Simulated assay, not measured.
Amino acid sequence: MRAVPVASERADGDAGRPAATPLSSLFPGGRIRPGTAVSAGGDMPLLLALAAEASAGSAGWAAVGLPQLGALAAADAGLDLGAGMWVDEPGPHWPQVLATVVEAVPVVMVGALGPVPDRIGRRLSALLRRSGSILLAANAWAGAELRLAVTTATWEGVGSGYGLLRGRRARVISNGRGAAAEPRQADLWLPGPNGAAEPFEAPAGPGQQAEAVAALTVAERRAALRVVG
């Protein structure tokens, strides 16, 4: 894939308010802000949905340290496989590899590569701000401006031992720093019948927004417990 100057590629995309998408209610301003990092709380369908939304209309995307990411799932989620770059095993020098990719590619998904020292985290944050790229972390990321997590999920479509899966109903919550400090939530098909995220209308109960921050913390702890050495 040809590398392009990310900052210039992003420049024209900042004008006007973006159209509503299934995930837009989770973001301040209705979109992921260029030059920032977002964590997906250990949920692969959510990570793919974020990448598909962030990369729409961009020059390309990359996946670093995600050997489990399947091409079919990525395509079903809405990612253009022809614009993708895979770096399954970045090796012990992954900070340098990730920094190089961030400077060249507008949307970068990253898996669990190991502890991120403060110095490396600050450097990557500076690179994101300079390039305008978006970093989407599969798991917790110390420098994430926005943290998302799936708090409840139910697959539908299978009856008493028969039938086909229709999709997964999921409740996604988000909060973070600055404009993202106020918790938000959305009920989605994640994925929907066609493999992409779709809105799901569900009645809202009282006090749900106030519970979002606590639920997000629990979801992140569960995601961390899934990591086995």
Rank of each mutant, 00 (worst) to 15 (best):
A19G: 15
T36L: 10
A137V: 13
A20M: 12
L66G: 03
G132M: 14
E156S: 09
P95C: 05
L98Q: 02
P67D: 09
P28E: 00
G192H: 05
E198P: 00
I173V: 15
G163S: 08
A214D: 11
R122A: 12
R17N: 00
P18W: 00
R221W: 13
P67A: 08
A126E: 10
L47S: 03
A153R: 11
A40I: 12
V64R: 05
L26G: 00
A197V: 06
A126F: 08
A170C: 15
E53Q: 07
P90F: 04
P183E: 13
E156D: 06
P183W: 09
V64M: 10
N194G: 06
L50H: 03
L23R: 02
G16W: 00
R147S: 13
V107F: 09
Q185M: 12
G121T: 06
A62S: 04
P193M: 13
V87E: 03
V218P: 01
V107C: 09
V38F: 14
S58H: 12
G178P: 02
S174W: 01
A181H: 06
L136I: 15
R33A: 14
L146T: 15
H93V: 11
L146I: 14
P5D: 12
A210K: 02
G82I: 13
E211L: 15
Y162N: 01
S39E: 14
N139R: 10
V227F: 08
G91V: 15
L113I: 13
L190I: 14
A204G: 13
R17I: 06
A180M: 04
G114W: 04
R221G: 09
E201H: 07
